[in-house]
Simulated assay, not measured.
Amino acid sequence: MGQLIKLRDYISRYEIDPYHYTGQYIRLKKHQWERINKAWEERQFDPYLVPFPAEPDHGEEKASFWEKWPFRKQREHEEPVSESSSFAAEEDPDMLFSHVPASNNDLKHEFLDKIYRFQLKWASSTIREQSDFDRRYFYDETLQFFLKRLPDHNLYMHNAVLEVKNAAVEIGPVLITPAGIQCISWITGKKEDILVGSGERFWTIKSGKYTKKTLNPLLDLHRTTTIISRIIKSRGIDFPVMKRLIFEHGYADFQTPPYEVEVTDKRCFDEWFSKMRNLSSPIKHDQLRAVKAILDCTLTRSRIRSDWEEKGN
């Protein structure tokens, strides 16, 4: 899975230390998958199932809500959980299932769903702070594509807000790979749609008998690329930055191909995607330097978590 290093103006763990968290994420995901896959294969999956409250016997005093749910409330004879333990738990994904997956493929899909939600948590909170999270990102198809379908060494920024000349500027999708940075314009559309591009402010999407206008996506793409390139160069980092227009399900039609823009439509999407999936490379030092430089220029809105304030920190 790709790593979500920045989402809008939310606080992200990667802002604290991208060198640490990129490696920790890969180790954590690998460890969790090995444990859960082994449990499934050996038919010892019960520890990963959500515990349901047991009905009390008629002769017993009815248990309280908290007592019926293990781990929710400490028993009197238990030692209190230390802060370091509770903080460590914050770093782990939720791996409880409501049922035993029917196949290993089902297990993989449900595991990816849980890691996806875990990434949204890392991209909107730290142990000490959190941002107000928009739940629509649970279902964002573009975000899910870059996180669920690409390898771990791809570091992704979604709708990030940067500070440019004392102004807040939201940029488009940015994918930071070991080979370079791809500034992306992702255009949604139906199968067999035709995107007619030009040098005008508005383009046309032909869908069957219908035609609609859409704002020229290259305007935002050029702006994103310019901002990212300036940040990289200002830090003395020699790392490629390119523009990519993606129209997964339809065809992009140009009288004159756009300058210095890689166009990925239905005719070549599978080839591009296969190349991205099959690239075997560790995360590179210059890649992380580029990530650090960009994150240093992002804006963040967050507040102290209520549970942290209660601890008096």
Rank of each mutant, 00 (worst) to 15 (best):
S306I: 12
I294Y: 02
R277A: 09
K292V: 02
R301N: 13
V291I: 12
D296K: 00
A290M: 07
T300M: 00
P282T: 07
T298W: 00
H285V: 05
I294A: 03
R277I: 07
S302P: 06
V291G: 05
A293L: 03
I304A: 11
R277E: 12
R301G: 09
V291E: 02
R301M: 00
R289T: 09
L288P: 00
K292R: 13
D286C: 02
T300L: 00
L288A: 08
P282S: 12
I294M: 07
L288E: 06
C297P: 06
S302Q: 12
R301D: 11
C297R: 15
L295S: 11
L299K: 10
S306V: 12
L295N: 11
T298P: 01
R303C: 11
C297H: 13
L299H: 09
I294Q: 04
D296E: 15
S281C: 03
T298D: 01
S281A: 09
L288T: 03
S306R: 09
N278F: 07
K284D: 08
L299S: 06
D286Q: 12
N278A: 08
R305H: 13
N278G: 08
V291Q: 03
I283F: 01
L288Q: 11
S302L: 09
R289H: 10
D286M: 05
P282Q: 08
D296Y: 05
S280G: 09
L295D: 06
A290H: 06
T298C: 07
R305E: 15
R305K: 15
L295E: 09
I283A: 01
I283L: 04
S306E: 15
V291S: 03
R289L: 15
K284L: 04
P282K: 02
D286A: 10
P282F: 07
S302K: 12
S306A: 14
A293W: 01
N278K: 13
